[in-house]
Computed example of a mutant assay.
Amino acid sequence: MLYLDNAATAPVRPEVLDAMMPFLTRRFGNPSSHHTVGEDAASALADARARVASVLGFRTGDVIFTSGGTEADNLAVKGIALGRAQQRGARRVVTTAIEHESILGSADYLRRLHGFDVDLVAVDSVGRVAPDAVAAVLRDDTALVSIGYANNEVGTVQDVPAIAAVARERGVPIHVDAVQAAGWLPLSAAVLGADAVSLAGHKLGAPKGTGVLAVRGRIPLEPLLHGGGQERGRRSGTEDVAGAVGLATALELAEAGRAEASTRVSALRDRFIERVLAAVPTAALTGDAVQRLPGTASFTFAGTSGEAVLLELERRGIVSSSGSACAAGSDEPSHVLVAMGVDPDLARTAVRFTFPTSLAEPLDAVAAAVAASVAAVRSGG
């Protein structure tokens, strides 16, 4: 079986599991406990926090460990917006029509329950957001701009530094959802200009259920979880020390190999795209052909069903997806593709292939399998 759904989740790296194991066994303490066992756990947690902060270019105290990318995004959007509403009366959130459901759902929550206005910035036909379009909707009462660094379905990469510069000029904090970008693109706050960045460990080789939100200390943040006041009062609940150690290890490993992996996988991705488009005349690439994640190739196949193509591919030993794993099982067309102007019926034919950073061999056989699978669906089997 060839697994090409790494944007949904990646396998846990052996080095990560090795780093975590002591904190799942003999070093099991609660980091809030005031004895030697707890202090050992607290020390490991502090070290993991410092390692994450170093990669992201934030201060150690800015790092909040979460249960994953969805929680990190929720805390960023709701927490910063509510904090800014209390501090400045700002009650407007700016995001885009192609964001992950955790961003869009959080913005909708603020609209429905707290009376916020939500500005959804349009994207072009390849999923790019124009910085000028963001600038056009910024107001004095804008609490937050939230933007995905790279789209989880089509892989389009945004010009985050330019968008951040626009937000900074108006004094508006910017949150960057870097869940899909981690391991492929630079994450340094100095490069991005971000005030908050969210990550998910399971995209990097850490276990599912691990995540991070880094948010600058000057940004007000209303906690969503209340209780024992862990994470400096911003996210209550006993910390997952093993998960934090695993995430920090995975993030360091991903960053160390990022430049080489991006170059190598980009070349293999481009060859795969070329062969699919040549073998399937009605196939269309979705997303930006150049400004895209190295590990993402996504297509529509007119005259098919994306789910049917996936089943045919799996019969041939290839696992991929029709888009976001968080929307799996939905009959609705991808909101990302529809926002890009793709006809809803055509959007239902979408198939996404996402590659590991370890990919080293051409995917010519996979391209041939795609052509055979599409032909089988069109002929009725």
Rank of each mutant, 00 (worst) to 15 (best):
M340E: 11
T304A: 01
G287M: 14
T286G: 11
R292G: 14
R352I: 09
H335R: 14
A328L: 12
A254G: 06
G323Q: 06
G287A: 11
R316Y: 09
A250K: 04
L337P: 02
G257M: 08
I273V: 14
F355R: 06
S266P: 11
A283I: 13
P333R: 12
A278M: 13
E307M: 13
S262G: 13
G287W: 03
S321P: 08
S266F: 03
G317E: 13
A248F: 01
L277Y: 08
S321N: 06
A297L: 02
T304L: 01
I273L: 14
T354V: 04
H335V: 14
G246S: 11
S262F: 04
D345C: 11
P333K: 13
R348H: 05
S324D: 15
G317V: 05
V351I: 04
A325Q: 11
S321H: 05
F355I: 14
A283V: 06
A248I: 06
T263K: 13
T349A: 05
G295I: 02
L251Q: 02
L293F: 10
T286L: 11
V280G: 00
D343W: 13
R275K: 06
L253Y: 00
L247M: 15
R264C: 14
A297P: 02
L337K: 10
L310D: 02
R316P: 02
V338Y: 07
F301G: 00
E312W: 00
L293Y: 07
P294Q: 11
T282Q: 11
L311D: 02
L268S: 01
I273K: 12
R292V: 08
G257D: 08
M340N: 10
G287C: 08
G341E: 05
G329S: 13
G287L: 05
L251D: 04
T286E: 11
E252S: 09
A283G: 07
A328I: 05
G317D: 10
S322A: 14
S330G: 13
V280P: 04
S266E: 06
S330Y: 05
A259M: 11
A289R: 15
D270P: 10
G295R: 03
T300L: 07
T300Q: 03
R316V: 07
D331K: 15
G287Y: 01
A347L: 08
R315E: 07
L251T: 03
M340G: 08
F355C: 06
L311N: 09
T354N: 04
F272V: 09
L311C: 05
L313R: 07
S298Q: 00
C326A: 12
L310W: 00
L285G: 11
E274V: 13
P281Y: 01
A256H: 15
A339L: 10
F353T: 08
S320E: 03
A248K: 03
L313Q: 05
R258G: 04
V336C: 12
A302V: 10
S320N: 10
I318D: 05
R316G: 03
F355N: 02
L268Q: 09
F272Q: 02
G329P: 04
A284D: 01
R264W: 07
L277P: 03
L247G: 00
A339R: 12
T349D: 08
L251E: 01
G329A: 15
E255M: 09
G323W: 01
G295W: 00
P333Y: 10
A297H: 07
R275F: 14
F301R: 04
